[in-house]
């Protein structure tokens, strides 16, 4: 399915230099693609197309392969995180208590899908596994703030607190 947000790439020459240094070491290493992608994400915080193209070209693999791996493993992000990292627990307890609807409401209000960031980079949205406070289910977090026992109707009010 088409991703619906695009964030302008703002990588620096220093970051690119770091990336190319990493790639030159992993160039002929069997199985070097995964560590290359992990280190690239450490450098940039996420794996935008511009970075994936450099990895593909330097390691002699196709962009489709790099992207396939980036979308297979949950550890890789295609978008940067927002100033406010919104996370909704979709673990079993939260899910049966209706966190799915909360997630859908957030996705609708922010107009982004799972893993994406708003074009102004204010909010990013992630579905998470159990975060260990099932007693508060359903739970969402924004940065270090925890919101428990909420419903989809509460979403707009919570988000409003973080608007400029």
């Amino acid at each position: 399915m088409k991703k619906n947000t695009t964030i302008p790439f703002d990588g620096t020459p220093e970051q690119e230099q770091q990336l190319r240094a990493v790639l030159s070491k992993l160039k002929n290493v069997p199985g070097g693609l995964m560590p290359a992608m992990q280190q690239a994400q450490d450098i940039y915080g996420y794996l935008p197309k511009e970075v994936q193209v450099i990895i593909a070209e330097e390691l002699g693999v196709s962009l489709a392969e790099v992207y396939g791996i980036a979308t297979f493993y949950a550890q890789f992000a295609l978008y940067p995180k927002g100033q406010y990292k919104v996370a909704v627990c979709l673990g079993t307890a939260c899910y049966v208590k209706g966190s799915g609807e909360i997630f859908d409401e957030l996705s609708k209000q922010l107009n982004i899908a799972n893993g994406e960031v708003t074009p102004d980079k204010r909010f990013s949205l992630d579905a998470t596994r159990c975060i260990g406070c099932c007693g508060l289910a359903p739970v969402m977090t924004i940065n270090d703030e925890v919101y428990g026992k909420i419903t989809a109707k509460d979403v707009a009010g919570i988000l409003a607190k973080y608007q400029a």
Partner: peptide, 17 residues
């Protein structure tokens, strides 16, 4: 073309959809 995403959302497609 390659294999994208995982689980039920797995599909064959091009990089960045």
């Amino acid at each position: 073309i390659g294999t994208m995403n995982r689980g039920f959302n797995t599909s064959i497609g091009c990089a960045f959809d």
